[in-house]
């Protein structure tokens, strides 16, 4: 303490930044190691079929209502906003295209990702954290079970597989929401609207959205499990792990989204 007071402010800040950066790199490395453990778990029997199904239900079906409502309102507000904008230069017939493209390329995957990281990421971190602090993970090990393979792998596989499916639903419902607002509230021509919706939409728009979603699912599950796995202490530790999981996975969604959009598509 006394030592620190002697140092000047700048070197303190630098030191803090340095340790923070070092920790981040270290954590990144740890997450990557966890991923490698998952990969090795993948090729060893037994297959975690039941567990994967359970997680698919948890991540997919249970998240469906949240994702659908979010997507529906996203589509609706998109239609409303772009309508009022496009009206200024008589281009309201492009609202359908704008809604469809924004939803499939960007908003569907990102909002579904954020919803899932809030809902599922927290649940995963809390569950694994609790198991960690109550020695259930140790118990797994004594029962000849690799906890990474048993707990992390199924969650990662399920989230990676299920998020694209969720996004298909989100795309559909989002487009539908936009349609309802445009046609029933704003008086767009329904035929023209549907026509425009699909005219400029391509396979690539939909598939890139789904690829993004798969990456989001993968990151959310991996990061949340990592945080749960490393929970320390009692209930407080679990709480902290949960918070970190949600914050880190939401950030991972947004950051990876930017890079995927700029590099790949």
């Amino acid at each position: 303490m006394a030592d620190e007071r002697k140092k000047n402010g700048i070197s303190l800040v630098l030191e803090h930044l340095g340790t923070t950066a070092y920790r981040m790199v270290e954590e990144l490395g740890n997450v990557f190691v966890l991923f490698l453990q998952c990969v090795t778990g993948l090729v060893r029997p037994p297959s975690e079929f039941r567990n994967i199904m359970k997680q698919m239900e948890e991540v997919g079906i249970r998240s469906l209502p949240v994702v659908l409502v979010t997507a529906m309102f996203t589509g609706m507000v998109l239609a409303l906003q772009s309508w009022s904008g496009f009206q200024r230069f008589q281009a309201t017939h492009f609202v359908g295209s704008v809604v469809a493209l924004s939803i499939t390329r960007e908003l569907g995957p990102v909002f579904a990702g954020l919803m899932v990281s809030g809902r599922v990421g927290a649940a995963m971190a809390a569950e694994l954290g609790t198991m960690k602090v109550t020695e259930q993970i140790d118990a797994l090990v004594t029962l000849a079970t690799n906890p990474v393979k048993y707990l992390v792998l199924p969650r990662v596989i399920a989230a990676t597989a299920v998020l694209p499916v969720l996004v298909i639903f989100a795309d559909f419902v989002g487009i539908l929401g936009g349609y309802f607002v445009a046609v029933y509230l704003l008086g767009a021509n329904p035929y023209l609207y549907v026509n425009k919706t699909y005219q400029y939409l391509t396979f690539t728009d939909i598939y890139t959205g789904l690829i993004k979603a798969a990456v989001f699912g993968f990151l959310i599950a991996l990061i949340s499990c990592y945080n749960g796995f490393n929970a320390e202490g009692g209930a407080q530790g679990v709480g902290r792990a949960t918070t970190r999981a949600v914050v880190a996975s939401s950030m991972a969604v947004l950051v990876s989204d930017y890079f995927m959009t700029s590099f790949m598509f």
């Binding site: 698919m56 997919g60 079906i61 469906l64 299920v162 694209p164 499916v165 969720l166 298909i168 639903f169 795309d171 559909f172 699909y198 939409l201 391509t202 396979f203 728009d205 939909i206």
Partner: peptide
């Protein structure tokens, strides 16, 4: 759940 998703995807791929 998955089949419904695939059906919607097929619909999309057909429409586009």
């Amino acid at each position: 759940f998955v089949i419904l998703g695939l059906v919607i995807l097929m619909y999309f791929t057909f429409r586009v």
